[in-house]
Structures are given as structure tokens and as C-alpha cells.
Design a protein around this nucleic acid. Structure first.
Lengths: 114, 114
DNA sequence: CTAATATGCAACCTGGAGGTTGCGAAAAGC
DNA sequence: GCTTTTCGCAACCTCCAGGTTGCATATTAG
């Protein structure tokens, strides 16, 4: 069988859409609200913002396409709830990057100490 | 003095530009190359890609504005090297999000067990 | 039933992201 | 000195993200 191939960068390029979804202050604020666990309706999520409900709706759909969030219809309102998997995945990618960099630093250190 | 104010979401909205900088497959590939520690010139970084050198240059400038990378001129070529701080910062934000979610799960668990 | 609430859908606008080409200038090779 | 390399700058193009307004529809309240 092929190598286990743990977290090589080529595969992690799939993380780009998740990063892109988080690359907006409005959407980051939405994630911060929803990761607390309580599902909230679009109107509730619009409440604090100066943006329109439709703008917030579009942002929520971007988050939903990145699977960071999903919606459940309940009566006349659609409730959005947080989904942790994509964020765990990009954390793995960032850990890979940090680890590569730390290896560089330790190689440099042992070279200087030599 | 004002509260220590550890990692509340409002402050972490400053992470949005860093996420945006990582929200592109080309730039993710550049980061993956550079986090290995070896500084590389623009031509070297263009080598594998199907894009133009100027396109790669623009991507590098985006990464540089997000402080994920910085350039040093050396003769006729400008070498880019990785900078770990912004990535550490967004890792902290993601840890905050995961932690919030985990607290929700444990609250739910203790409620069910009750 | 009627009114208020919550949402969906569609058209529209604007700015900037991502990419290209063309040209000029500085460094290095020969 | 002449020729490559390597890069920077600028103009230009296309497309979509982000935002708005307007209207239609379903659901709940009274």
C-alpha cells in the first residue's frame, strides 16, 4: 500500500477555502459567537452588526460552504450552529508549519553550538 | 491598568488579514515551501508554478503585508523568508474557538449524565 | 383573519483580487 | 563591453466578493 503520508503540504492545500472563509472580520465575529455552542437565528446574528440581514446571510453561507457552520430550519427561523472539524484540520496544517520552522531553529542552534 | 483581557474574540478580529492571506492555494504552497527555513528567491519560488513571476510576486507581497514572510535583498535577487509570529497568533485564536466548543460538549455531557 | 416577524430570492452596483503583458534597470557571467 | 538573469513598475483585463434594495413567502402572534 502507499505510504501513510502524514500531513504533507500538497494535501493540506485543501485547507485554503477554510482559511478564506475565516479571512473576514465579520465572519470571524460570527464564528466567535457560534463556537460558544448556542445555535442562533439569522436575526439574532444580525443584531449587533451594522450590516444588513442579507449581508449576514451571505457570510453565513460562505461559512456553511466551508463546513464551519450548518443551518437547521426551525419554524420560520433557520438556526446556525458551529461545526469544529474544518477548524481542527487547519490547526493540523498550522502545526505542521510551526513544526517545520521549529526544526529549522533547532538545526540552526546545534550548528551554532558546534 | 486595564484588564489582562486574555484572548477575547474582539481582539482576535485582527487575525482576519492573516487568515485571508492564507486563503489561497498558491500562497499556502509558498508558505509550505518557505516554512522549511531555507530562504528562496522569487525565481526559485516561481519555478514549479504555472503562474507568472509577477503573479508570484503579488502573492508574496500579500504574505508580506500579513507579516507571514519578509524579503531581504541580496545582489540582484530578493530572498524571502518565513516569519512564524502571525501564524502563532491565529493558532491561539483557533485554540480559543476549539476550547469554547469543548466546554460546550462537556457541559452537554454532564447534563446528559445527570 | 390580519398583522408582524423571519427568511429567501433576485437584480444590481462597486471595488479590489488575481492574472497577464510590456518595458526598464540593476547585477552577474563571460 | 555585451548578454543574461532577476527583479520592479505600470497599465490593463476579467471576475467575483461584499454589500445594498426590493419584493415574495412562510410562520407565528393576537
Amino acid at each position: 500500500m502507499s505510504r501513510p503520508n502524514r500531513s504533507r503540504p500538497t494535501a493540506s492545500i485543501a485547507a485554503a477555502p477554510v482559511f478564506a472563509a475565516l479571512g473576514d472580520a465579520t465572519r470571524l465575529a460570527l464564528v466567535s459567537k457560534l463556537c460558544g455552542g448556542q445555535p442562533r437565528s439569522i436575526s439574532q446574528l444580525t443584531e449587533g452588526s451594522r450590516l444588513t440581514r442579507q449581508a449576514i446571510t451571505k457570510h453565513l453561507q460562505v461559512l456553511q460552504k466551508a463546513r464551519i457552520v450548518h443551518s437547521v430550519r426551525s419554524g420560520r427561523e433557520s438556526l446556525f450552529e458551529f461545526d469544529p472539524k474544518p477548524i481542527d484540520e487547519i490547526k493540523q496544517y498550522l502545526d505542521f508549519v510551526s513544526q517545520q520552522w521549529d526544526q529549522t531553529l533547532s538545526r540552526l542552534k546545534s550548528f551554532v553550538e558546534d
